[in-house]
Design a protein around this nucleic acid. Sequence first.
DNA 1: AACTTGGTTGAATCAGCAA
DNA 2: TTTGCTGATTCAACCAAGT
Lengths: 371, 371
Amino acid sequence: MADAKNATRKGSATLSLPLNKIVQGDCIDVMNSLPEKSVDVIFADPPYNMQLKETLSRPDNSKVDGVHDAWDKFSSFNAYDEFTYRWLDAARRVLKDTGTIWVIGSYHNIFRVGTALQNLEYWVLNDVIWRKSNPMPNFRGTRFTNAHETLIWAAKSADKGGYTFNYDAMKAMNDDTQMRSDWTLPICSGGERLKNGDKKAHATQKPESLLYRVLMSSTKPGDVVLDPFFGTGTTGAVAKKLGRDFIGIEREDEYIKVAMERISNVKRLDDETLGFTQSKRAQPRVPFGSIVERGMIEPGTTLYDCKRKYTARVRTDGTLITDMEKGSIHKVGASVQGAPACNGWTFWHVEQKGELLPIDFFRQQVRAEMN
Amino acid sequence: MADAKNATRKGSATLSLPLNKIVQGDCIDVMNSLPEKSVDVIFADPPYNMQLKETLSRPDNSKVDGVHDAWDKFSSFNAYDEFTYRWLDAARRVLKDTGTIWVIGSYHNIFRVGTALQNLEYWVLNDVIWRKSNPMPNFRGTRFTNAHETLIWAAKSADKGGYTFNYDAMKAMNDDTQMRSDWTLPICSGGERLKNGDKKAHATQKPESLLYRVLMSSTKPGDVVLDPFFGTGTTGAVAKKLGRDFIGIEREDEYIKVAMERISNVKRLDDETLGFTQSKRAQPRVPFGSIVERGMIEPGTTLYDCKRKYTARVRTDGTLITDMEKGSIHKVGASVQGAPACNGWTFWHVEQKGELLPIDFFRQQVRAEMN
DNA sequence: AACTTGGTTGAATCAGCAA
DNA sequence: TTTGCTGATTCAACCAAGT
């Protein structure tokens, strides 16, 4: 599919998706060489040092006067912004319309990133706080201990829905309450920390637990995950383990070498393990009429709400009727309560042996047969 | 002092600081009418530009009372940015060179605010996360529960130090470990929430506990705290309680009325209570030698730990000596215990009338004399 | 008096699909 | 592009009333 799409793009490199590979090069160039709308999720951990000014040409009036400090600062923010807009723009092109992007940063850069995302018409879904359970202490006692980093999760645009959020899986992972926007996870240390000899292979290696939660929440098995600042490949390692395809982009030989070695040692989990709590929304639609049609509920049956306050009778076509109203299980359920909306499946019950059984029970039976 | 400064500024309104008052008007106009470099700390809770679309209902079909006030409506990000740059610029003028600013926001606006702060040459000290212990859930299961807000704490510029950070008070408040950049506090509800009849007086009232920590960490008693979006006056109420002076700026009659009533019911804490929480760092250093020098403790005196397990004798130069060791009160205290470190001021005691008195008592006496 | 139950509420960018 | 239907979806606190 990606190849077919790619072949139709004129004037661009005809490159099929380099799945589960690390592409060496500048991330903007490489992303521009990939087919558009081909990636499900992007995870990006961009550099946030502000020392980019050396690599960028200064304006002509480079006479540095008394306010040189401020000028330098401003110019470096400008340079950083330009870089940020360029890679975020390239990222947006390769993202599917239903895709989302994650960017991680600290207060040095995350405000610039967030502003750029919004200006490029990405639609912020959440800002997520990674609370480090074991942050580096502040040695000078002049500020609060910097104990968190910020991730921004954004969709391609406000009007393009359909993004993946595995709500039920997240809720299950969090002891059955909704996953919040703050995640408490340890930093990457110990055996997980990749070394070259006795010095760390990468200054800002992220913990796999962080990527685990990112990918579990916003991707499905088989999705394509792109990381434009691949580093030592945490994104790739976790994607492989979770049965997602990855594309890594990285400039430095040394990081690529370490990442390839690392990922080759990762095993993909088996399909059964990869199964996760599915959203109810993803299940097939079963009309109430088919429950009646199959004779699971006879026409003429009286339905009750859970407190037997309201009743309605089932008609042959799967609609309900009361003294006042007739229509779908949802419409009549809303109407009798005077509510704006109602889920008829959980609202209405049938009486069996004196007990009330929600009509959703029959839908579940039908769905079970369908598998 | 404020008057004197103000009188020397030519061409500006000669307005003395309206301490502990609420000034009605547009915050930019009012700030521009105040003398420059006159305020120690600014706390600002600007509109978030939430861009809410339709009404949201809970699973039980009740309606969420969202923020639909006119003051939160902006036509575009551009309009919001212009507003932000203008008020942050006016704020910077009234801030002392040693002053700091706090701004609170959510992902809707905080990236714009952070970018503006950096572009205006404020210097970010921390971003602080307010983790809500009881946030509103996400009712549709479409995102992570929005369980935090972000505060940015910034100095006037990178090269203007001397700002207040009460490191020790923060550490003491946090069970003697450094205060982190994430603060877990409940939202404002229950009896604290101000009401007009049975509806809330302000859509976005902040909890006093949040302002307590802000003011405790970054101001001293007697400091001037400005809040350009005063609302129902949480900043003023906490400032008054903590013995700080406040200046409130607010446009709406109704909010001002509620705030004035509220603040009039607040009592200032007594000096002793306020003093207890002062930073040790802000207090002048007193060498143990000067205690000996002054004759408050005679050379040759025996010091004890609080359980009389260890002893040491005072030498003329203010060092201690045991059988094994000699050195500072801290070094010898650590050594006798076999501990890596020790605060000699609280570890060592002198005997007076059979009772043990910590030597820190004498340091406090010296400090009291110095004020 | 202590405990249980039920109702209310909070800075919210809160659906997806087919006709 | 818009409309309309199906049907999925909540946590911690506080408070009032009942047991």
